[in-house]
């Protein structure tokens, strides 16, 4: 079947597929192709059924469903085998993959196997006279590149949180269960263990992110940021220097390298605002910057700015927020 196919995974039984963002992109491309949107859904457990319904509800006509215990926890080689098997039979023109831990590895490898054109880490997709116009950030977020993809099939990976989850548009859906045979012993790279990091609120889903940079000065400073995040019900993030210095886990890093977030409120504390970092947070609705340097580039993306030492500002800010929120 020609058309647009999204690759969706159910990492854990209860997870709603964040792959819905891709469905929005697929629907935008499909409007001019008129060939329908399908999905490869891979995973294990009861979450698969729920995810199938969600995909149908958002306009995915055909769901190719692969259930296997190895389709979990970053087993890229298993996801690759299953996706390749489905797509060789389904032959879509365009494949969309979320550029997360699995997808950033899966997309290029799948493109080679399918003999497809490849563009990675797209932040915008549009159809234009039968071609796909993809935008992606380059040079650490300093520039935005527009690429035109004329070859088919094409594999496009999409940076997480760059596309909106679309409004529901239910279609009478079809499910095709595809049996995949994967033998753990034959996988060239096999995940033996998943080491989860303690996180009170996940950065990915947080509506408020309090983020610290080199100017925070050390791990102690991040304790203060945690307090601020806690009263706001948010998560703590960081720019690259604190992650490189080992003050915070690398998974906290926001930016071109690291996570992309677009919360309702982003508070950048002692972050200079290197383009590298801005690339991962500039989509936030309200951006507050606290920095001692009035010329710091972060103020050019911020909506509200405070010039000053965060150590003198954060404690009274926490206290005032507590007062305003009441008991």
């Amino acid at each position: 079947m020609p058309g647009i196919c999204v690759v969706a995974t159910v990492p854990d039984a209860a997870a709603i597929p964040s792959s819905l963002e891709l469905v929005g992109g697929a629907r935008a491309l499909d409007a001019s192709h008129g060939a329908g949107v399908s999905a490869v859904l891979m995973g294990t457990g009861p979450g698969l059924r729920e995810a199938t319904d969600e995909l149908h509800r958002h306009g995915v006509a055909t769901v190719y469903r692969c259930a296997h215990p190895l389709l979990t926890s970053g087993q890229v080689d298993a996801f690759l085998l299953a996706t390749e098997q489905v797509l060789r039979a389904a032959t879509p023109q365009v494949v969309l993959i979320r550029a997360d831990t699995v997808g950033r590895e899966l997309a290029p490898r799948l493109a080679v196997r399918l003999g497809a054109a490849l563009v990675t880490e797209c932040v915008e997709l549009a159809a234009e006279n039968g071609a796909i116009v993809a935008r992606r950030q380059t040079y650490g977020g300093r520039a935005l590149a527009t690429l035109v993809v004329t070859r088919r099939p094409a594999v496009l990976s999409v940076k997480p949180h760059s596309l909106e989850v679309p409004e529901p548009a239910p279609v009478p859906g079809r499910v095709e269960d595809v049996a995949v045979s994967i033998d753990a012993d034959t996988l060239p790279a096999r995940v033996c263990e998943v080491l989860r990091e303690e996180a009170e609120v996940g950065l990915d889903d947080a509506q408020v992110v309090v983020s610290g940079g080199r100017g925070v000065g050390g791990p102690e400073g991040f304790a203060l940021l945690k307090e601020l995040a806690a009263v706001l019900g948010g998560a703590v993030g960081a720019s690259r220097p604190p992650a490189d210095e080992g003050w915070v886990p690398i998974s906290w890093q926001i930016g071109q390298t690291g996570k992309t977030v677009r919360p309702a409120l982003y508070i950048a504390v002692a972050i200079s605002g290197a383009t590298q970092h801005v690339a991962g947070m500039s989509g936030s609705r309200t951006i507050v910057a606290i920095n001692r340097d009035p010329n710091a580039p972060i103020f050019s993306v911020a909506h509200l700015g405070i010039v000053g030492d965060y150590r003198a500002i954060v404690p009274p800010l926490v206290a005032r927020i507590k007062e305003l929120k009441g008991p």
Binding site: P11, S73, G74, D100, T101, A189, R190, V191, C192, E193, V194, L195, R196, E197, D204, P249, S251, K259
Partner: peptide, 8 residues
């Protein structure tokens, strides 16, 4: 990895 680390 998004959720922490994988030992592979």
């Amino acid at each position: 990895a998004d959720e922490g680390f994988h030992r592979v």
